[in-house]
């Protein structure tokens, strides 16, 4: 039944397909939508990677990975390039995803119009009739209040010039990556919605002519691996409030250090503090 919803979602990119979300052995907010989608697409030959904000080693990522090791007997990996299915919360890996891979997003709120129009009957009608002026009202409000489009997560996109879609709370830095070779599947458990992007779907971030979309991120290199083109987390490193910026994608950062790259802290991979 979820597979049928997935097929429909792939056939109509960006359209939210309702599905009957099942009881899951975990609370909502822990990725029940993503887990159900992963369970529907995993086969015994797959290798699964699970990340939470880019990291493979958070409690949430580890427990979902263990869950599938036990229930689906699939192999797991932390290496992006080796994975066939990647379940993610709030990030797209830095390593380019390719044909043959599937990226599964955990989605808290699938409806991008919810912010200004709480009535579900009305938002459905707006999607049906392509009445998307309201999305720009949201961006207008941003500029009026902050002088610039301050939305930096869950930045709305238009898919194949048709449906406006919430990309889940990934940083806007990741938006340009959504045009990719892999299949992207989005599961919202509590809200019971699935949507999808087939490979190389056209995904455009909404903006104004005089305030164009800007996917920039913190202007620092990674303190561990020196990467200047990756999305960074700011971490506190000591009791004195010392901070540093490190890659949010832990696999990407480790692979770079394994290859000999060093950031300002100069430490090799084995001692990486983040």
């Amino acid at each position: 039944m979820i597979r049928r919803a997935l097929l429909k979602a792939l056939a109509v990119p960006g359209y939210q397909v309702p599905f009957a979300s099942r009881e899951m052995p975990m609370p909502y907010g822990w990725g029940t939508g993503g887990v159900q989608v992963s369970a529907a697409v995993l086969t015994p030959d797959d290798r699964l990677k699970v990340i939470d904000q880019g990291a493979d080693d958070t409690t949430n990522a580890v427990s979902i990975r263990k869950f599938f090791e036990r229930t689906a007997q699939v192999e797991t990996t932390e290496r992006t390039a080796d994975a066939t299915v990647i379940q993610t919360r709030h990030r797209i890996p830095e390593t380019e995803l390719v044909d043959g891979q599937i990226l599964v997003y955990q989605v808290p709120i699938p409806e991008p119009l919810r912010f200004l129009e709480p009535r579900e009957t009305e938002t459905r009608k707006m999607h049906e009739l392509e009445e998307y002026g309201l999305m720009h009202v949201k961006l207008y409000e941003d500029i009026a209040r902050h002088g610039t489009i301050a939305t930096s997560y869950a930045y709305p996109v238009k898919v194949e010039n048709r449906y406006v879609m919430d990309p889940s709370p990934i940083p806007k830095f990741d938006n340009p990556k959504m045009r990719m070779g892999a299949i992207q599947l989005f599961g919202a458990g509590r809200e019971q919605r699935i949507y999808a992007l087939p490979p190389w779907t056209d995904v455009v971030s909404l903006d104004f002519e005089d305030h164009p979309f800007d996917p920039s991120k913190a202007d620092h290199p990674c303190a561990l691996c020196g990467a200047e083109d990756s999305y960074l987390d700011e971490v506190i490193v000591d009791d004195a409030g010392g901070r540093m910026f490190v890659c949010s994608d832990t696999d990407f950062c480790r692979a770079r250090r394994d290859a000999g790259h060093r950031g300002a802290t100069g430490r090799p991979a084995a001692e990486g503090a983040a």
């Binding site: 002026g133 309201l134 104004f208 002519e209």
Partner: peptide, 11 residues
Amino acid sequence: ERLMAVGARNY
């Protein structure tokens, strides 16, 4: 809002 609803895209 009505301007944006009919396609205005210049802030």
